[in-house]
Design a protein around this nucleic acid. Structure first.
Length: 955
RNA sequence: GCCCCCGUAGCCCAAUCGGCAGAGGCAGCGGACUCAAAAUCCGUCCAGUGUCAGUUCGAGUCUGACCGGGGGCACCA
């Protein structure tokens, strides 16, 4: 080509000349990636066959079910942090697929939720329109990444055929009760039979047959695993909805929106997750999950063992829960929560003549003191309570009798005791509880130690081990022994019993929202809920004139919830024939919380088109059933690998386990747990920069000089944290695909560190991954002609050793999700190939090295690998293997080099045959000339030979 | 306040059972190519593992205390 002799160096012709026509550039990558993505789609490369149903096909016994926590399709699109886990699972899935396993990997959308609804409130756009557009945008972004999803299995929780089954599962839960003896859920008709046959007593003892139908139904309803309850809930006027405990922050505000949240009573759907507290806690031991997540779940369930003890107060009895029944001899007063129902009953009319002035709150009578205290307590927000841990309270004027020694002890009302936990009442043992100690000191109450602290203990309450003292028949016993003894004594004498308490509460399951699953329930003329028959499912969301719930002044605690669905009056008021002729019913106007759809989506991935069942049992058993031979006797089954952020450690993962266990109890699934193995990927974070006014400046325009940062000449301040539009530091996967190609982007994300570690994004580092792929390409393809440059010659012994060591390590690394080190090995191999066979070094790379190298690269950078595989003359995709196997012969070395230490410091080294025994190594080391010189004729005191490692000479 | 995790080169990260601190990448530096630059290629410098003690023939790895960062819980009896 000629440049025309005009000497214009800036022309594109010159630029094109500078880069060889077949160099692996972003442009070539884009072309290769488009082509292979089309190929995979055309050939259904990632379609995983099922045992039965519409996706049935031949299924090997060896399978793998990999799942990502599915995303909410937000309108903002993806930044480079989002796909980290998606790529991680894809590499794992592709690796296992190449090993010959039947691999199921797909991705759906958690598509109900507040943002689309809030957008609808603002613009009038139907949430479905917004949601579907966002899903399309999202799919376009992730498709570019070349994720090997079975696209046939995509679902969105908002799909009507999907939420039909969400409603169906709700009905199954509604139609069940928890049999505490059998420790499992059973269908409601079995409960009715127990009542009807007199095997189970009715609450007031009347025979079942004598109760009215409404009375019977109310009893049954009170047993259901999902039930309506007039319960204190977290009412958030600012959002116009109630929230689950989990959605309220510790300072009493909504997690979303940060509005004030008030406690008030409302009639709500509650899921009886507490029935499963023990199994949810116990079965954590059977799961391959990060300990951190298990601990968080255990803490959330908050199981504690102790006793209930009944303290007589006048003609009443106050039950307390304590984890330290062994300290009951040291109980010097009782405390009831302000909301405790017995407070009014026991409060005396007058103060005792010698009442301590600190106890009365300045009131003339106990009822006045209690009323004033209760009012003050009810007006305290969660935040107030948190800010001040000073102990407050008032005396009720009443005395309780300590059942173990007959002592009369005063009864207080104080807000450091919470109504929501245990019995809402405690026995206070200041000697062994710091909170009680603080209160006792404030109010001048006696303190009796019942555990002897160690010599020299100068603290206040003592909570450690020690022998019981001042405790009558318990004296001298250790804590555990004393607990057993006192519980037995309490039970024998009818003063109490051993007891277990949980922090876990039932799950509030109603939302006063529009964009969620409607409840498949109607109310009859008695106002009682009636389940719709299955053939009436799905209950579709009606259109409404206005998507907003009634929202209020965020501080208006007395406002009433008004859900958007209540406005669809034609839908709410229906005439239905539910088996006893057409009658008028009223629909439930709440919707389910966003968690509902994500409780079971792994099951629908397995059988997405089944309209007879939510999932065929054969398909569930194959993909998720327990496999004790592979995973041990205790294997509960579940998804083989579930990857997502640790932020779902409690809520989603606990709810999902709960639903799964219900389905297991009712016989619909064979697995006892939804996710056998869980893995938390780290977060990709980013630097952001603020100027002197605190305004964010575009991060990509900031320059670093000598550890300081400048933007437009002014110095700016570096911050580290999330990526976000408002922080002006977003980097998108699309930019990376444009600049380097998806294969480079994937490789870089996997190479920058272990999958579970959070780290900062650094665009400038991406080029390293790109150069590696470029070098690898250049080793196998002539950059000028595009022809493959492989030879059919056998590689030399050294190359074979490097190759097989690489294979062994890459297999091991991929299998354990350690992609970063696997990639390092591949780079090493490629560096060796470059030196030995690269351009300028002979006639090309031996096929025996080229092919395994391409195959090992395939899970990471699949498009490039497919292209090279095809250039090497293969007709079919490498997606289903083979994957190279290491030949043991090349893994053993003939000689071994031992470093020789003298007193722990490396002084020399010696090469011996690999077969050399300890004595030979020792002799060789001691004969080495530098060592001889160092020893200067002295006898070493000791010589340590670590086979295969080193020699240490101690002098 | 309590509990958990993490501190290795200027930066991101490696380092089986306690056994040679460095695999890989970025940046830097030197060189090749180029009229020049970018891109590309070749070569190369850099820490003794947050601090202090201890165990050991030998500690990044084990133990204790402290410092720094991140996370969870928070009057749960």
């Amino acid at each position: 080509m000629s440049d025309g002799g005009t000497g214009n160096p800036g022309t594109s012709t010159a630029a094109a000349e500078a880069v060889p026509a077949h160099r692996y550039t972003a442009e070539l990558a884009a072309e290769i990636e488009r082509r292979w993505q089309a190929y995979w789609e055309r050939h259904g490369t990632f379609h995983a066959p099922n045992p039965v149903g519409s996706l049935a096909g031949p299924v090997p016994e060896d399978k793998l079910f990999v799942q990502d926590m599915f995303p909410y399709p937000s309108g903002a699109g993806l930044h480079v942090g989002h796909p980290l886990g998606f790529i991680g699972t894809d590499v794992f899935a592709r690796f296992n697929r190449m090993l010959g396993r039947n691999v199921l990997h797909t991705m759906g959308f958690d598509a109900f939720g507040l943002p689309a609804e809030q957008y609808a409130v603002q613009t009038g756009t139907h949430p479905r329109t917004t949601t579907e557009a966002n899903i399309e945008r999202y799919l376009a972004q992730i498709r570019r990444l070349g994720l090997g999803h079975d696209e046939r299995r995509r679902i969105a929780t908002t799909d009507i055929p999907y939420y039909r089954w969400t409603q169906w599962i709700f009905l199954k839960i509604f139609g069940s009760w928890y049999d505490t003896n059998a420790r499992k859920a059973r269908p409601i008709p079995e409960l009715e039979a127990e009542f009807a046959e007199g095997r189970r007593a009715t609450p007031d003892g009347r025979p079942w047959g004598e109760l009215s139908r409404v009375e019977q139904r109310k009893i049954i309803d009170s047993y259901r695993l999902v039930y309506l309850d007039e319960a204190p809930v977290n009412w958030c006027p600012g959002l116009g909805t109630v929230l689950a405990n989990e959605e309220v922050t510790a300072d009493g505000r909504s997690e979303r929106g940060n509005f004030p949240v008030f406690r008030r009573n409302l009639r709500q759907w509650m899921m009886r997750i507490t029935a499963y507290a023990d199994r949810l806690a116990d079965d954590l031991d059977r799961l391959d999950w990060p300990e951190k997540v298990k601990t968080m779940q255990r803490n959330w369930i908050g199981r504690s063992y102790g006793a209930r003890i009944r303290f007589p107060v006048g003609e009443h009895g106050v039950d307390v829960f304590t984890t330290r029944p062994d300290t009951v001899f040291g109980a010097t007063y009782l405390v009831l929560a302000p909301e405790h129902p017995l407070v009014d009953e026991i409060t005396a009319t007058t103060w005792p003549s010698d009442v301590d002035s600190r106890w009365t709150g300045g009131a003339a009578t106990p009822p006045e003191a209690v009323a004033a205290y209760r009012l003050a307590a009810s007006q305290k927000s969660e935040l107030d309570r948190q800010e001040s841990r000073d102990k407050t309270g008032v005396f009720t004027g009443a005395f309780a009798t300590n059942p173990v020694n007959g002592a009369a002890i005063p009864v207080f009302v104080a807000d450091y005791v919470l109504m929501g936990y245990g019995t809402g009442a405690i026995m206070a043992v200041p000697g062994q509880d710091q909170r009680d100690w603080d209160f006792a000191r404030e109010f001048g109450l006696p303190i009796i130690r019942t555990v002897r602290p160690p010599e020299g203990f100068d603290g206040e309450a003592y909570i450690g081990e020690g022998p019981a003292i001042n405790s009558g028949f318990l004296d001298g016993l250790g804590i555990d022994e004393a607990k057993k003894t006192i519980i037995q004594w309490l039970e024998e004498h009818g003063h109490g019993e051993g007891s277990v308490q949980y922090k876990l509460r039932d799950w509030l399951f109603s939302r006063q929202r529009y964009w969620g699953e409607p409840f498949p329930v109607v109310y009859d003329e008695d106002g009682l809920p009636v389940a719709l028959p299955e053939h009436m499912l799905p209950v579709e969301l009606p259109d409404v004139p206005d998507f907003s719930p009634g929202t209020y002044d965020p501080d208006d605690r007395d406002s009433e919830p008004a859900p958007p669905l209540a406005k669809a009056t034609d839908w709410v008021e229906v005439e239905l024939d539910l088996g006893d002729g057409p009658k008028r019913y009223r629909r439930d106007t709440n919707v389910m919380p966003q968690w509902a759809g994500s409780c079971w989506y792994q099951l629908r991935y397995l059988d997405p088109y089944n309209d007879e069942q939510f999932c065929a049992p054969e398909n569930e058993r194959y993909w998720m059933g327990p496999r004790p031979a592979e995973h041990g006797q205790d294997d509960p089954g579940g998804v083989d690998l579930y990857v997502g952020g640790v932020e779902h450690a409690v809520l989603h993962l606990l709810y999902s386990r709960f639903w799964h266990k219900v389905l297991y109890d009712l016989g619909y699934v064979s697995s006892e747990e939804p996710y056998r193995r869980l893995y938390n990927q780290g977060y990709i974070q980013a630097y952001a920069y603020t100027d002197a006014r605190g305004t964010y400046v575009p991060a990509e325009e900031v320059e670093e000089r000598d550890g300081r940062f400048f933007w437009n000449g002014q110095e700016v301040n570096q911050e580290y944290g999330k990526m976000g539009k408002s922080l002006k530091n977003v980097v998108t996967p699309d930019e990376m695909c444009d600049g380097y190609g998806a294969d480079t982007f994937r490789l870089y994300e996997m190479a920058m560190g272990p999958l579970d570690v959070s780290r900062p994004w650094a665009t400038k580092d991406v080029v390293g991954a790109h150069r590696f792929l470029q070098r690898l390409w250049r080793n196998l393809v002539d950059e000028h002609t595009g022809a493959p440059r492989v030879s059919e010659e056998q590689p030399d012994a050294e190359t074979l050793r490097v190759l097989h060591r690489t294979i062994a390590e890459v297999r091991e690394n991929f299998a354990n999700l350690r992609y970063n080190t696997g990639i390092a090995r591949l780079i090493e191999l490629n560096n060796h190939v470059t030196k030995t066979f690269g351009p300028g070094n002979g006639d090309g790379t031996p096929r025996a090295v080229a092919e395994p190298m391409v195959l090992m690269l395939a899970p990471l950078s699949p498009h490039l690998a497919e292209e090279l595989w095809s250039l090497l003359g293969h007709e079919h995709s490498l997606a289903h293997g083979p994957f190279p196997e290491a030949d043991e012969r090349y893994l053993v070395e003939d000689t071994a080099e031992y470093p020789i230490q003298v007193n722990g410091k490396v002084r020399s080294r010696v090469v011996v045959p690999a077969s050399a025994g300890q004595d030979e190594v020792r002799a060789a080391a001691l004969a080495e000339e530098k060592i001889v010189a160092l020893l200067e004729g002295r006898q070493p005191r000791k010589v340590i030979v670590v086979p295969g490692r080193l020699v240490n000479v101690v002098v």
